[in-house]
């Protein structure tokens, strides 16, 4: 890997960290297109539980890992929502980069030239 590529990767990663760690706090908290469509036709109480009607999400079940420490893009135990989202977003970018880059590096094509690199 060249030095120039290293700088590009570092710059790109910094942008991703700023987006996930800072800008994410200004993202819309409305349900997305899928979720909104799935909820259409049902009525909900203040806790978001279905109280009546017919909609796609009617039989929706709890997530198997709903209690995980980073569930719903927040850190369990941190009450400040800005900090919680910022840390969860930062962790997500680093985890995704780590897993992605690691797996792709292992799976990369090794030509005869690469062997001694």
């Amino acid at each position: 890997m060249t030095k120039r590529l290293g700088w590009f990767l570092a710059g790109g990663l910094l942008v991703a960290l700023l987006l996930a760690g800072v800008v994410s706090n200004f993202a819309s908290s409305n349900p997305d297109g899928l979720d909104a469509t799935a909820r259409e036709g049902c009525t909900f109480n203040a806790d978001g539980e279905i109280t009546g009607g017919t909609c796609i999400a009617q039989q929706e079940g709890e997530h198997q890992l709903a209690g995980s420490p980073l569930a719903d893009y927040g850190i369990k135990g941190i009450d400040n929502s800005f900090l919680s989202t910022a840390l969860a977003g930062t962790a997500g970018v680093l985890i995704t980069f780590g897993i992605g880059a690691g797996l792709f590096w292992v799976a990369r094509r090794r030509s005869a030239q690469d062997q001694d690199a």
Partner: peptide, 9 residues
């Protein structure tokens, strides 16, 4: 390979 990791992130 590293570029793909960045794209995922």
């Amino acid at each position: 390979a590293p570029m793909a990791g960045l794209v995922a992130a």
